[in-house]
């Protein structure tokens, strides 16, 4: 009996997520769009006095064009579920960059929490996070329904639901606070950025029956600030997404390739 020869180096380095995300024929378009976005953003900042977040938004909007081409190509090549995974990876990746930049601003650069708003500061609002997280949940749920099923995917769905539940809690409370402020005749006071379920001043920190001495002593659970809480929410979400996508694509990509007729 002969030992099976090891797979070739290229196969061992084949990471299905990178295979999926590779822009291939759209690489020049992606680079050009990125460059164009940076130029437009820079001109806007220097000549038109745009705030920095506008420049970042400009880059993202311009990048959306090759993105749409790429995702359509993904659908043709690998199917709708893989296209959804591709979209989710890119979108959640950018979202995580926003949280990482907040984290860097706060912890490494030593900025104040209120100043550590990442690259897209206006996105740091209750509305945007509430809507964004529900979109993520719905996409994950739709993908699961279309075959994106493995242990990590289910864990991702649960995690995303829990994250979205916290944002829903914060969003509802945000609206209630605005209503109360209105009834007091107070205008011009922001109700954004209040704590949610986890972290300091959060629901758990004030819920003795549930929190108790044990939970309250778990590091960060009732003591972290909102910036850290949501950094970890997103880190967990991205990690589960990567694991789920890796597991799914490892089988789905070869199957899609096999099903595609040779040119």
């Amino acid at each position: 009996m002969h030992a099976q020869p090891p797979p070739p180096l290229k196969a061992r380095l084949d990471i299905p997520i990178l295979t999926l995300l590779h822009p291939r024929e759209y690489t020049p378009l992606v680079l050009a769009a990125a460059l164009a976005g940076v130029v437009v953003g820079s001109l806007g900042v220097h000549w038109l006095g745009w705030p920095f977040w506008s420049a970042v938004a400009a880059v993202l909007i311009v990048l959306l064009v090759p993105g749409v081409f790429k995702w359509r190509a993904d659908q043709r090549r690998y199917g709708a579920a893989a296209m959804g995974v591709s979209f989710l990876l890119v979108a959640q990746g950018f979202h995580t960059v926003e949280h990482i930049s907040q984290w860097v601003q706060y912890h490494l650069l030593g900025w104040e929490a209120r100043e550590s708003v990442g690259l897209l500061s206006p996105a740091n609002s209750e509305w945007v996070h509430f809507i964004w997280n529900w979109i993520v949940v719905l996409i994950v749920a739709a993908l699961v329904a279309r075959g994106f099923r493995n242990g990590w995917a289910w864990a991702l769905l649960v995690w995303a639901l829990a994250h979205t539940f916290e944002h829903t809690y914060m969003f509802v409370r945000y609206l209630l606070v605005l209503q109360e402020l209105g009834s007091l005749g107070v205008a011009g006071v922001t109700a954004q950025g209040l704590p949610g379920i986890f972290g300091q001043d959060g629901w758990l920190a004030r819920s003795a029956a549930i929190c108790g001495p044990f939970l309250s002593r778990l590091p960060g659970l009732t003591t972290a600030n909102r910036l850290d809480v949501h950094f970890w929410w997103n880190t967990g979400e991205l990690a589960l997404l990567l694991l789920a996508a890796h597991t799914y694509l490892r089988a789905a990509l070869p199957a899609a390739r096999a099903a595609t007729p040779a040119p």
């Binding site: 030593g110 104040e112 929490a113 209120r114 409370r173 209630l176 606070v177 209503q179 109360e180 402020l181 009834s183 007091l184 107070v186 006071v189 922001t190 109700a191 209040l194 704590p195 001043d201 959060g202 629901w203 920190a205 004030r206 819920s207 600030n225």
Partner: peptide, 27 residues
Amino acid sequence: RPFATTDARTWAAWLPLIASMRPVSEK
């Protein structure tokens, strides 16, 4: 520092006050 942070009325009472105060750095 407000205790009943799960209560919208408490926040509504505190937020104008907090907005009028000199911000204190977390550091």
